[in-house]
């Protein structure tokens, strides 16, 4: 278990370090200094360098420090919810807002949480309706609705 914990932790820190590295390299696309003051590239270079060093330090401290083997929650449920979110956002542009949002709630209630169908449908329906009422009707946010307007 301890190794697995370290892998995730380490991967995350390395990810930030890589982002810092990307910024360090990318900063040179912009002028660093102009006239009296730093130009567009200067602070990105500084931030990138700092983030790289700090994240690398975090990673190193994971290798050399004594990591307390902590019990972590299983990933499955979170990944399911995350996957559902991705599918929902991907479909927003095509079939409007209300259906995917309703579907998201139904999917989580029924499949992820295994809750009773009728109550799930009522709750999801009520939430969707109130969102539509507040955002579409009162605030008139042009949410993409079902695309009947070609």
């Amino acid at each position: 278990m301890k190794d697995k914990v370290l892998t995730g932790d380490m991967g995350f820190a390395v990810g930030w370090a890589l982002l810092g590295l990307y910024w360090m390299v990318g900063a040179f696309d912009y002028p660093l200094w102009s006239g009296f003051a730093p130009d567009s590239g200067f602070l990105p270079l500084v931030y990138g360098t700092l983030l790289f060093l700090l994240s690398a330090a975090v990673a190193l401290s994971l290798v050399f420090g004594e990591a307390e083997p902590e019990e972590r929650e299983p990933l499955t449920k979170s990944l399911l919810v995350l996957g559902a979110l991705v599918v929902v956002v991907a479909s927003l542009g095509f079939i409007g807002f209300l259906l995917p949002v309703f579907g998201l709630m139904m999917f989580i209630y029924l499949y992820v949480e295994r809750l009773p169908l009728l109550r799930s449908a009522v709750v999801a329906g009520l939430v969707t309706a109130s969102l539509a009422l507040i955002f579409v009707h009162w605030l008139s946010i042009p949410l993409p609705l079902v695309t009947w307007d070609f």
Binding site: V81, L85, V88, V89, F97, V101, L104, M105, I108, Y109, V123, A124, V127, T128, L131, F135, L143
Partner: peptide, 9 residues
């Protein structure tokens, strides 16, 4: 689940 819906909208 409603929290997620509110965040998105």
């Amino acid at each position: 689940p409603p929290i997620l819906a509110i965040c998105l909208v």
